[in-house]
C-alpha cells in the first residue's frame, strides 16, 4: 500500500507530501505519524504541503486531527507551504483548520518549531522563578 514517508530529524519529524492525497492515504498518514511520534518521543512535526494542489474537508480534518493528537502527545505540529489557491479554497469551503499552526516555508517552520520549544522551556523556567 502507498505510504507517505516520515523522516526523523533529531527531535523533529519531517513529512513532505509529494502526491495528491486521497482519503485512505491521509488516514494512513495520520496513524503512521502518531505512532512515529510515540516511538521517537518527538517534540515537533513539520508537514510540508507545498506540492499539494487540493485539500478538501476530509484531508483538512486529518490535518486538524494530526495537530490535536500530536499536541496531546506533547509534540507541536506546523504545516508549511500551503499554496494560495488551496488556502482560499479552504476558507471558502468554511474550513479554517483551527488548532493547526502554519508557516510560509520549511525554513520558517523549523524556526517556529524551535522557538516554540524554546518558549515552552522558558515558561517552565519562569514558573520555577515565580515559586522562589
Amino acid at each position: 500500500m502507498e505510504r507517505i514517508p516520515i523522516l526523523k530529524m533529531g527531535d523533529f519529524l519531517l513529512v513532505t507530501i509529494q502526491v495528491d492525497l486521497y482519503d485512505q492515504l491521509a488516514e494512513n498518514l495520520e496513524s503512521d505519524l502518531i505512532n512515529t511520534i510515540s516511538k521517537h518521543s518527538s517534540k515537533g512535526v513539520l508537514i510540508d504541503i507545498s506540492a499539494v494542489s487540493i485539500i478538501d474537508s476530509f484531508m483538512g480534518r486529518i490535518l486538524g486531527n494530526i495537530a490535536v493528537m500530536s499536541k496531546i502527545m506533547d509534540a507541536q505540529t506546523v504545516v508549511v507551504g500551503m499554496q494560495p489557491a488551496v488556502a482560499i479554497t479552504l476558507v471558502e469551503l468554511g474550513l479554517s483548520l483551527n488548532g493547526v499552526i502554519s508557516a510560509l516555508n520549511v525554513e520558517r517552520g523549523m524556526d517556529l518549531l524551535r522557538s516554540k520549544m524554546h518558549t515552552s522551556d522558558n515558561e517552565e523556567q519562569d514558573y520555577d522563578d515565580d515559586n522562589e
Binding site: 488556502a87 476558507v91 499552526i101 502554519s102 510560509l104 517552520g109
Partner: peptide, 12 residues
C-alpha cells in the same frame, strides 16, 4: 475575516 483566515492558513 476570510482574507485574514486565508493569510493565517498560509502561515502569515
Amino acid at each position: 475575516i476570510k482574507t485574514v483566515s486565508a493569510t493565517r492558513l498560509m502561515g502569515a
